[in-house]
Design a protein around this nucleic acid. Sequence first.
DNA 1: ACATCTAGTCTTGTATACACAGACTGCACG
DNA 2: CGTGCAGTCTGTGTATACAAGACTAGATGT
Lengths: 225, 225
Amino acid sequence: MPKRVILVYTAGMRASDTAYTALQEDILEGRLAPGTVLGEVGQSERLGVSRTPIREAFSRLIAAGLAVQHPGRGTVVSDISLEDVDRLFEVRIPLETQAAGLAAQRGTPEVFTALAEEFRQAKLAPEAESHYKLAARMDEAIDTSVGNPYLSTMLANLRVHLIRVRRLAKDQPERLAESAAEHRDICLGIASGDSQMAEAATSLHLRRSLAYISELRQAEPVPSP
Amino acid sequence: MPKRVILVYTAGMRASDTAYTALQEDILEGRLAPGTVLGEVGQSERLGVSRTPIREAFSRLIAAGLAVQHPGRGTVVSDISLEDVDRLFEVRIPLETQAAGLAAQRGTPEVFTALAEEFRQAKLAPEAESHYKLAARMDEAIDTSVGNPYLSTMLANLRVHLIRVRRLAKDQPERLAESAAEHRDICLGIASGDSQMAEAATSLHLRRSLAYISELRQAEPVPSP
DNA sequence: ACATCTAGTCTTGTATACACAGACTGCACG
DNA sequence: CGTGCAGTCTGTGTATACAAGACTAGATGT
């Protein structure tokens, strides 16, 4: 007897996709804290699907680095802390710098002048949610301008982890305003077609972001688990 | 009628792992050409395991970029050509340059002086197989020296694709000797602890490799599929 | 008291059965 | 001869049953 048919099959949406999306959100939003053990049966009951799609979702989580597989203890949500920020930026800085430089060579300037204008306005009224939305749109514009799937994939993988550390380091309004100004500089550099300017602006922005987080970390030592 | 390959179940080796390894090798070695459709049932029969591990293997292939999922036609081996080399190097150059620079700061010099000596000897008798083995050992040494899992993961993903393009561009002995010399320079730069020297040597090596492949591509136009 | 062996109970790994969706084929009709 | 449609059919998505491995806890022997 079918015990429960919670999910009517949404059009074109596989159960494994919905499970992965739900799990990823739960991890990124912190509802599933690092160290949480994810049992296949437990999650299958929680999400109302069978173990098979859950397994698929777990595989993708592990591939994305959001979970790790423990030998006999199941898969657990991967740990992350402000310590990881240094290692993440060691990858992020060269990749995004490269992306900005290539976007300057290949992008259509109008797109980025428009984005620069948006950042100018955003600087006046800093607000975290809209700021990150706008930054994401800039990243997307850079991605499409560069037109390199390998680079885009790497950056996408990276951004997942950056979202997690962002939760740990709450931005303050003045930093958001600074960040908006730096984003504007990047857009202007790309729009001008000067790849070196775009690279410099990107490098500057990321190093300032890193410095901000670093001093935040020094000021507020890690809360012991 | 396709041959049925009996997989040897190594101790502690899951069937999904062996299936993935077999499929990856088949793709990397060219036995499964780009465009080949991979049916779950077909591969499960060929490899002698059930569909479930095959599905898992397919997921990992797709995540690695070795296969893509077509809407109604199943999953097919992803296409790759010498055209991809430019896009790959747009990611590879900044990442490996960064890695070399960090290795110079953090690695133990003795490891890399030893590797440099090996490259010096390899330069005298260029041979593709041993050259790539040695280069792989250098990459591994850099990875461990840097100690950045995010960077290591990205480079590992990248190298899978580089193996595929390497098959398309057959190296010639003189290029191997050059390459060995350039690898030696990288090792010496890292061993000296001079990150800028290591970065410069890496950048030079990769740009020369790219130039070599590019002129190879011009000389020998793509065979139309 | 401590170590070790063993039974039990989780957990994951694998196989298979069933359901559904898309694509191909054959035929009829314009 | 082309086009549309229906039937079939293959192939994936999902569920579940079965098997095997691993940690745990308890008992037992030293």
